[in-house]
Design a protein around this nucleic acid. Sequence first.
DNA 1: AACAGAATAT
DNA 2: GATATTCTGT
Length: 335
Amino acid sequence: MREDDSNWFSRWEEELPSPEELMPLSQTLITPDLAMAFDIRNPNSNAAVAAANNNAGSPPRCPAQQPPPPQSSNPLQPPSSGVAQPNSSDFGDSADLGSGGGAGEEPARTLKRPRLVWTPQLHKRFVDAVAHLGIKNAVPKTIMQLMSVDGLTRENVASHLQKYRLYLKRMQGLSGGGGGVGAGGAGAAGLGGGADPATDHLFASSPVPPHFLHPAAAAGRPNSEHYLPYVPVSALQQQHHHPHMAAAVAAAGGHPQIQGQYHHRQVGHFGSPTSVAPANGQFDHPFLARQGQVVHRLGPPVHNGVPGYVEDLELGNAASAGGRKVLTLFPTGED
DNA sequence: AACAGAATAT
DNA sequence: GATATTCTGT
């Protein structure tokens, strides 16, 4: 039904990625604890990743900190208003790198990054991005840009997307009416129907826009095919690529994974509406218009009373048995 | 060359 | 099983 569309859509405007919340998203997230552990005071720019510790039985060693990435790591500096704080790179003590050993040299790029862990928050961002882009335009690079999560790579997204598509496919297959799509995480009620036991934990945690499931049906009439071409934006800002993701790594001996939830609302700004346009210029969509409006109303603490979304996420991650190190970067999301 | 997508590998 | 990496086609 069309209503559905409009409906979920509306919800979106409010619930989702309002540019304000999204853009500023240069999430360099390190859980406070972690930061402390690492003695990092500047979670704003790059995160340090520790890694490369695979040894069995080596003495307790503190994760060395990564030398700050060379050069300006803060390309994001909203011209207008921005809450970006200057980073003072101020490291208490910097130990030398245990590995590699080049002090002033670039750490070898040979180090592997820790596996990315797709937290529900991250995944949500992903879904939002995909939704906003429309399935058609949702390709890894674009999605990645829209998400603008620091440290996220195209590969990460591609891989996740691949899996996500499979998931959608499966859902379509089982569509029927039960479509327990909207079920939010916990206990998606009504699973009992034997519908989706397979409900992949992660995927099930974010609502899947209807079109995703059956674009065909949504198309009611074989005409409207495109949905929201909303194009990115800030993609421009993401210019630093470095071997180290902004993320945290667990270290310490036994529990390789870390997670934290630290919400910090950093409001940035959405590039000037007129500012950057993707070379494509696919800007003529009704949607954009909306987006535009939204953009206008940014900044001010116009706090709607919009309450209540009850979404529960579980923290706590699955564990990796082996001594794998896991990287968890999280978006600002807050749900 | 750059990227998307599927196929493998870890 | 979740991600990463490799391979292939565009």
